[in-house]
């Protein structure tokens, strides 16, 4: 589905070029759920934007279904850290905003949008405005917006980072349910270890200065996973090994007294 071949990205500053992504190679299979885990400033969001075709890379190659990425692919949905719903549109019109911006007209997608909003429990808010909803509901609507044209690929840039812990758990469950039903390829950027273990087939751990892949860990847990299982020894084992990788990178301090 996605093939990254030694991708690097640097940009010019007054004090010379700064390398943000260094020699990143990665293969993502169709239907796979991959998380990118890393500290702030490791370039994980930049990497996602490069894959989305909204940021250029300096060297290397990004192949999407075998074709080099030059512009945003049509079959892609992007969920940003902030919901980016616009105040002047109703929730329904926000969900169809993306396809309208793409020039594909909203009419064809209205039915699908309503279905999605129902599926995400926003039935009562279809004709309301975003500012009448809570943060969690807004982010659900944003996910509906990304899913409305049924993309093959879903890119998510810390989508639950700004939510409280309970809402976050809730949306993690929801996302797993959706993913299990549709089996879209998902690339999920996060800085939460439990979140990445709970959701992913594979976790790519990134280190910073320059942004690079520190480790790739397969999360070999049965699905559907349950939130209560996060105390389970196998779950803890994966969380611990991810933490160890981050410690070795010097990102988090060693957990010693």
């Amino acid at each position: 589905m996605i093939d990254l071949i030694s991708v690097s990205k640097s940009y010019e500053t007054r004090r010379g070029p700064i390398l943000t992504l260094s020699d990143i190679s990665l293969k993502i299979a169709p239907g796979e759920f991959v998380s990118i885990l890393g500290p702030s400033g490791c370039g994980k969001s930049t990497l996602l934007k490069c894959i989305a075709g909204i940021e250029p890379i300096s060297s290397g190659k990004i192949l999407m279904k075998g074709v080099p990425v030059k512009e945003p692919p049509d079959f892609m949905g992007f969920v940003f850290q902030r919901d980016l719903l616009v105040d002047w549109r109703t929730v329904l019109a926000n969900v169809t905003f993306g396809v309208e911006l793409a020039g594909r007209g909203r009419k064809r997608y209205t039915q699908k949008a309503i279905e999605l909003l129902r599926r995400f429990g926003l039935n009562d808010y279809i004709h309301r405005y975003p500012w009448e909803m809570s943060g969690g509901m807004r982010q659900r609507a944003a996910i509906c917006r990304a899913l409305v044209d049924d993309p093959d690929l879903l890119l998510m840039d810390e989508p639950f980072g700004a939510l409280d812990a309970l809402t976050r758990d809730d949306l993690n469950l929801e996302l797993q349910r959706i993913w299990s039903a549709d089996r879209k390829t998902v690339l999920f950027v996060t800085h939460s270890i439990p979140e990445s273990v709970f959701l992913s087939d594979r976790v790519v751990v990134m280190d910073r200065n320059p942004g690079r892949v520190a480790a790739v860990i397969d999360i070999d847990l049965p699905r559907p996973r349950r939130l209560a299982r996060r105390d389970d020894s196998r779950f803890v084992h994966f969380a611990t090994s991810l933490r160890t990788v981050l410690e070795d990178c010097g990102v988090t301090r060693k957990d010693e007294p």
């Binding site: 945003p72 049509d74 993306g98 309208e100």
Partner: peptide, 26 residues
């Protein structure tokens, strides 16, 4: 909002579409 503009670009929106659907209403 530059992020909304980014979102529009991820949808390959035309500059005119961005003007009429994002910038002007805002």
């Amino acid at each position: 909002d530059p992020e909304v503009i980014n979102f529009a670009r991820s949808k390959k929106a035309m500059p005119l579409t961005i003007l009429t659907k994002v910038r002007l209403p805002g």
